[in-house]
């Protein structure tokens, strides 16, 4: 399983979505986000733009390192999604 930690500001947009999610093993960050989108339709659009890429002010960490959509997820590795410093 792939444990995923989602930011509070994201789960507020999807009623019922928890901060911590366990996904079936996903090969890449993109696959994990696709699995999230399957459970909560529209979540991929909140995390990724149409380029496609992770949005500029969203940070994804895998095993403590900044990740991209094509970053590999080792079995059991935690994926942490965070909102970057932004706003005004």
């Amino acid at each position: 399983m792939t444990p995923v930690l989602l930011p509070e500001a994201l789960v507020r947009l999807f009623p019922g979505a928890p901060r911590r999610v366990e996904l079936p093993d996903a090969a890449t960050v993109a696959a994990a986000i696709a699995a999230l989108d399957a459970r909560w339709p529209g979540m991929r659009d909140r995390l990724c733009d149409g380029t496609p890429a992770i949005r500029r002010h969203i940070n994804v960490f895998v095993a403590g390192e900044r990740a991209r959509l094509d970053t590999t997820l080792p079995p059991g590795a935690e994926m942490i999604v965070m909102t970057a410093v932004s706003g005004g």
């Binding site: 659009d45 909140r46 949005r55 970057a84 706003g87």
Partner: peptide, 9 residues
């Protein structure tokens, strides 16, 4: 609108 984190909607 649009949010710096989560894009347009």
């Amino acid at each position: 609108g649009g949010n710096e984190w989560f894009g347009p909607a």
